[in-house]
Every structure is written in C-alpha cells, then in structure tokens.
Write a protein that binds this DNA or RNA. Structure first.
Lengths: 218, 218
DNA sequence: CAGAAAAGATGCGTGTAAGCAATTTTTCGA
DNA sequence: TCGAAAAATTGCTTACACGCATCTTTTCTG
C-alpha cells in the first residue's frame, strides 16, 4: 500500500535485524544465555559489534526480540480485525490474550529458557511495553475525536496491566535464583494460566474503556 | 513508629545517599550535566565509585533523585491524608497534582536544566514510575478485600498516566511527526500547565477507580 | 561483654553502551 | 546516466554497570 518496493535500504535493515535476532536466539539456546557475547552474535550475523548496538540496546533485547518478533503489530491488527460493534475493552482484551497465548510451538521451550535468567526476564517484561505505541493508534481510531491523550493513557495502562500479568505469571514464588522445578501439576505458584492472569489484570480497566467510548460527562 | 532509633546502619546509608544526590546535583548545575563523571561525584561524596553504583544504577539517577527526593512516599502519604469519604480517584488525582506542582523553589530552575538534556529527561520520566509501589499499597488499603492485582493495575496505570503528562509537559514543540490537528471538539490541549496535563491524563482512569470502589458486576 | 553473624564498602576485572570521525552504500536530483 | 547528498556501517576510544572476592563495620546472641 505505502511502498510496494519498501526501499532496498529498509529491506536490508530488516534483514540485518532478523539475522541478529535469529543468531542471538540460536546461540542463547545452544550454549545458554550467559555464554553468549555480543561479539559472537554480531559475527554470526555478519556485522560488527558496533552495528549490533545500533539495533539493540542490550544483549538480552535481541534474544527476547527473536521470540517476541513483531507481537506489537499483531496485537494492533487483532484489535482492528474485531468488529467495531464489540466493546473496545473486549476487543483489546481478546486481542492481547490471543497474541500472548499462541506463542507458537518452539517459542514455548525458549520461554522456559527466559524464565531462568533474571536478566532475560527483565528484558522480556520491558519488551511488553512495546505494545503501547501501536495500541495508542488503534485505540485513538476507535475513540474518534476524543482527546488523543485519553488513547495514550488507556494504551499505557494496558501495557502496564500486561506487564503485571506477565510478572505474576513467571513468578515461581521462589526468591532464590534457580527454581527450575517444572512442577507436575500442583505448583505452589499462586498464579493461574497466562490467559487468566491477563484477563484478570485487564478487567479493572474495562470501565475506563467503556467511559471513553460513550461520551457522557457525569 | 517503627524505629525511634532507625538503626545507625540505616542512618549512615541514608546519609551517604543524600550526600551522593547533593553532590551529583551540585556538580551538574555547576559545570553542566555532561561534564560530570561518576568518579567525581563519588569523590565529592566521600565514597568509592563502586559504592556509587550500589546506590544508583546510572549517573543521571542521582541527579534526578536530588530534585525528586522522596516524592513517591509523599504522594502515598497525601492519599491517605485525604478523608476516606472522598472518591479514591479524586484522592489520588489531587495527591499527585499536589506533589508535582509545588516542586519547590530551587527545583524549578534545576528542572530547566533537566529538560535540556535528553538523557536526564529519560531518567526523570523513569523516576516517575517509582510512585507505583507506594501507590499500590495505599490503593490496596482503600479497596480492602478486592483482588490485590486490581490495586497494582490501577497504581501502574496512574504511574503511566503521570509519565504521559510529564512527557507532554516538557515537550516544547514535537520534534517527532506530531500532527496536532485541532479536533472538531476544540478541546485539544497541546501543552498547558502541569496540573492541567496531570488532571487530563488521570481523568480517563477515574471510571476504573469508581468501579473498583463499588463492587458491582455489570 | 565478647564472639559470631550479617550487611556494607571497596578494589579489581570484564563486558557493554555510546560518541566521534572516516568509509562505504543507497538514494535522489540534474 | 552521473554526481552529490543522505544514511548506514565500522573501528577506535571512553566511561559505565556489575559480578566477585575481600575487608571493615554494625548488629545480634549467648
């Protein structure tokens, strides 16, 4: 639509980006998250270490980006895909749950890798904040002429709620670093399934969405 | 209440913390934010550079901490200070506005210093996220038996809204592609006073607070 | 009051984030 | 088609964040 040839320059940038993501994830899975240096990732992707930092601010970002991929854009698309008749709160909630539950097949195993290292955990949680900008756009479209600040606040609140849900999810209740016991069924984890946690975290925001949709001044 | 002698150990920690904050701010004002090295701040405070990083994760954190002080605790206290009869949404809004408007006298000039450097701007915005934990506590107290996750989500949403308000505030004229098209409603507030921006950003969250206060399932 | 335990502070070393200037590559206008 | 402007990549360099081991200081317990 915008650019049938998106520009050769841009394509190479995306190719480099994906090469870095892929290399980072592969090396992290192969030899463990801590046994990977930026220099090696850059070498595997065929660029210089300096270029690596032009794409990712930290070593962990590339790894989580590989499994997160472009989840932000997918969530935004999932919201617009829902019929305009549904409550905005429901549309957003379902879109978020949908895109976070079917994380794919291989991603499931790599997620276990992430939960182990706290540095990766943090990067993973920070990555969740990336849904805010696209969410702002789609929410603003749905709200129409309302103050654009409202859309931003709602989007940011959703991002915060998602983060909280994820925190509760990958919190094995163990203060110690290593708790790899993938318990059978009766885990001590007070948390439930990820979809459930996401819905629980997003539920308190529903009234705010409803109020924003129906312009009434109390 | 807890410890009339808060422990000599803790007092020394706080003293060191304040010495670092003070030294960082003083040096930053004197010679500019970029002409200050961590080593110098540490030396001025009488500790080693390594110790500096035990208190602050980055160089900018110490500077913004000097003017932010313990605003987080003050906001939480301001919320509890309000009578329990007021709407929780109003209590939180007023507490936030109150603690952010009277930034003090000298703080006003140092704020101008902050707005100049983008690195300091980011640190300042990140510092706003610090209000989330204490807010979570006070909100949970007000909500009582409600799901504690709700309190966290609301507190995080408030923190996000505050951040957005601050972003809009210290944004002279959007360098980014900011098409501030004047809506038909004419209620576009590109950049007003800080209290106004804070209220505007927190307003959309009021329905969520109301719903959380009155347990009704629609 | 003394010794043990806990918490800090410090020095050292490594890996990472980022500024700067030079070089190469892509894009755009003549 | 060609040359100039713009953008990206890269090497070099500096400063910073952080883990680890050690030593000192405070606190707790007998």
């Amino acid at each position: 639509m915008a650019t049938p040839p998106p520009g050769l320059r841009e394509r190479k940038k995306q190719a480099t980006r994906e090469a870095l993501r892929e290399a980072a994830l592969r090396l992290a899975v192969e030899r463990g998250p801590d046994q990977v240096r930026v220099e090696e990732i850059a070498e595997a992707a065929g660029v210089s270490p300096r270029t690596y930092n032009n794409y990712f601010a930290s070593r962990e970002q590339a790894i989580v980006a590989a499994i997160t991929a472009d989840r932000e854009a997918r969530i935004a698309a999932a919201v617009t895909a829902r019929p305009a008749t549904t409550r905005l709160a429901d549309a957003v909630t379902e879109a978020v749950v949908e895109q976070y539950t079917d994380t794919g097949e291989q991603a499931r195993e790599t997620l276990l890798l992430i939960t182990a290292k706290s540095a990766l955990r943090d990067a993973f949680l920070d990555a969740a904040a990336g849904i805010e900008p696209p969410l702002t756009t789609v929410i603003a479209e749905r709200l129409g002429d309302t103050d654009p600040c409202t859309a931003r606040v709602l989007a940011a609140s959703v991002a915060a709620a998602v983060r909280i849900a994820l925190e509760n999810w990958l919190q094995p209740s163990g203060t110690t670093t290593d708790a790899r016991s993938v318990g059978t069924s009766g885990l001590v984890v007070p948390s439930g399934s990820l979809p459930g946690l996401l819905r629980a975290a997003l539920a308190p925001l529903a009234p705010a969405f409803d109020a924003a949709e129906s312009p009434q001044q109390p």
